[in-house]
């Protein structure tokens, strides 16, 4: 994997009339992982969207080197289509392929997405993310709705991703087991 980098310099985020956080800086190089922790409503999702370039920061700058993959609460899969076809749409746009067996999705490929449970949807979204083969993973509450096995698997997948030279940024209020992962408390930047 090519070298990638994600830097944010002194960013602030405003939603409506409130400044959620300010003066936040971070720098991630190839192979590094960071957990952004904070209570609900602290701005974890907004930070992810700012880092992804989907939201303009109120102030400050974000620099990205490498392709960005986003996993959030929106799976971006067609509800009425069977899972196999919904994923096939993304694999036609992306280069890689997802380990469907490992994610336990192989038996579900004929099931329309709208019948999938929360955890199954999350795993399907992880499959979409892996197929994208992006270098920088931005994961917003990746463990929501997952059972213990799937949590362990997700942690392993993120570990493999970083070992291969990728960057992972995990926004979660839950425990995320990953060796050598840095931690950033969003509360320290709250205003």
């Amino acid at each position: 994997m090519e070298a990638c980098r994600l830097t944010a310099t002194d960013i602030a985020c405003r939603r409506g009339d409130r400044i959620l956080f300010a003066g936040l800086s971070l720098a991630l190089e190839s192979g590094q992982a960071l957990q952004v922790a904070g209570a609900n409503g602290m701005g974890k999702s907004s930070l992810i969207r700012i880092l992804a370039g989907l939201l303009r920061p109120f102030s400050g700058e974000v620099e990205r080197q490498g392709s960005i993959g986003l996993l959030d609460e929106k799976p971006a899969l067609d509800e009425h289509q069977p899972l196999g076809e919904a994923l096939a749409f993304w694999s036609a746009l992306d280069t890689g392929s997802a380990p469907l067996d490992r994610l336990g999705l192989a038996p579900l490929l004929d099931v329309p997405v709208r019948y999938l449970s929360t955890g199954q949807r999350k795993r399907a979204a992880i499959a979409r993310l892996m197929g994208q083969e992006a270098q920088v993973w931005l994961l917003d509450e990746p463990l929501n709705g997952l059972d213990t096995d799937a949590v362990a698997l997700t942690e392993k997948l993120v570990e493999d991703h970083c070992a291969a030279g990728g960057i992972a940024l995990i926004a979660s209020h839950q425990r995320f087991e990953l060796k050598g992962m840095a931690r950033l408390e969003l509360a320290e930047f709250a205003t």
Binding site: A52, G53, L54, K74, D94
Partner: peptide, 14 residues
Amino acid sequence: VEAGFFDQWALRGI
């Protein structure tokens, strides 16, 4: 937009 398709397309440079 609600399902996140446009976000994912934007990240892919579409």
